[in-house]
Design a protein around this nucleic acid. Structure first.
Lengths: 129, 129
DNA sequence: CAGACCGTTGACGAAGACGTAAAGGGAAGC
DNA sequence: GCTTCCCTTTACGTCTTCGTCAACGGTCTG
């Protein structure tokens, strides 16, 4: 009933190499079950991997992504939770900074886009004629 | 009249090491003038460096940042400009993807924040009494 | 003129994130 | 039973991004 994957299947589906998958496992980001010696990935593993890849697209290191994944472990004692809350809020703050950088970059590129577009339009004023 | 900087000055002001500055130069991201053998950075160099650092905060490699900086060279023939326009639009598309990733992450973290907060509040229902 | 400070180049080192053979196990088909 | 295919581990290689000496040059100061 439940969808399962081998390394190669999951890797291909998400556009990475099996080597990367194994590497993430060594680094403690994934822990798929084994059948005999072979890795078997579940839907949960797949979801976790997608979080990993999203983290990479955001420019995080594997160590940072590891810490990020830990934030999904909401269980724990009061002290644990206080600690977790702090870490979550720190991440949110970092992401806010990143959003600012992102938007500033987008603004500038859009401005360039306009400049170049109009410059090109001025140079070849034939389309409207 | 114009503000100038040595490697050490500029590095300290922007919170990086002189070594990094020289490295960016080797990689073709910066090209400060020389007085004798010594590097002299202008305001323009400084601005360029700030773009570099912003790129790093967004998770780009130095090679990507190099290409990004090229996008600010708006001059050139028609063919150059068409090409530039394409590259700018490609970047904008990538950045849109990154924004989606960013916002998805923020949403999830905020949800976790709420969960943990309420969980903590439920456990110690004394503040309101 | 001897130190004390910048600043320079060059070389070596190191961590992160994999790529790439090398060598082998287990099942499936002919 | 042998080949083929998928998977495994181990190990070494590579590229990036600097950190860290080492050895040297110029300038200013006492």
């Amino acid at each position: 009933m439940e969808q399962l994957y081998t390394v190669n299947q999951l890797a291909e589906e998400l556009g990475i190499t099996p080597r990367a998958l194994r590497f993430y496992e060594v680094k403690g980001l994934l822990a798929p079950n084994r059948v005999g010696n072979n890795r078997v990935y579940t839907k949960r593993d797949r979801a976790r991997l997608k979080l990993i890849l999203r983290g990479k697209r955001l420019g995080f290191s594997l160590a940072e992504i590891r810490e990020y994944l830990d934030l999904y472990n909401v269980d724990g004692g009061v002290e644990q939770q206080r600690n977790l809350l702090k870490r979550v809020q720190k991440r949110l703050k970092d992401l806010a900074q990143q959003r600012e950088d992102l938007e500033a970059t987008v603004r500038e590129l859009k401005e360039i886009e306009v400049q170049v577009s109009t410059s090109l339009a001025d140079r070849s004023p034939g389309k409207d004629a």
